[in-house]
Amino acid sequence: MLRFILSRIGMAVPTVLLVAVVVFFLIRLVPGDPAALLLGDMASPESVAALRSDLGLDKNILTQFAIWLTNVFQGDLGTSITTKEPVAHLVIERFKVSAGIVLVAVALASLAAVPAGFIAALRQNSKLDLTLVSIAALLLSIPTFWLGLVILLIFGLKLGWLPVVGYVSVAEDPSRGLLYVLMPILTLFLHEIGVLLRMARASALEVLRLDYITHARAKGLPERTVLWRHVFPNAFAPTLTLIGLVLGNMLGGIAVVETVFTIPGLGRLLVDAIFGRDYPVIQGCLLFIAVIYVLVNLIVDLCYPLFDPRVKIT
């Protein structure tokens, strides 16, 4: 087990390194100069040049990369060009905000979508199935920014139940904090339900068609046992992979939802950094996101044997 974990982490190192290289050079290929952006339209070339040299941007790009990578290995992600804050601190603080919302939304969506998907599969082609599949397709097709704005319009404006803008940390003031994250959670929940329900339904249908299910039924096992012992565990495995992917994806920032609901999360940090060409923050965010992705998928892989005994971790 430990060896598996260590070897997986070992395998992730080249991935993360590759991300580091690509991110570093790609963002510098994009036109736009952080110093010029910081100083604005009326900056003189001298002041731009002075700021560039201050920021170390006048150095050879390979030298810049070497400096950055050395610092990263020492645990220093640098400081933000725009706010002068340490990037590691920024990323962690913003991640905590996004992660709380995403974890709750994905957990709720999984709890709702997986059983619903299985039920739809069992009642394939029934009215219930059709209804569930249609709802899933609809939710899946609605872009999150629009869904978010509609939810904001209904609960914030028309009903006036929830505050439209602002953010209070749940850790600081649980009851008020909750008010501010309800709408973003609902938005993500609705969106992810669509994805997960379809996956759960499709996997269950596939398993239901397999020979061993027919065999289990033929040997006279009660339907309950067939479902619980044979269908669900086998059908859940692919959905689990998808949950892992969704989680990895969303933990990397839910920029759109964060922007609509003014949540100071990781996604907004990254988007703002890209617009401001804040290289250290972009690099730090993306590196962090890559690591999170690897970790989430590792955890999912470790959970696999719980549902699918065919998978053994050695």
């Binding site: 904001l152 914030g156 404006l157 609509v260 609901f261 907004r268």
Partner: peptide, 9 residues
């Protein structure tokens, strides 16, 4: 409030 629609709301 970065989003204009949110600011309006």
């Amino acid at each position: 409030i970065p989003d204009r629609s949110s600011a309006k709301a």
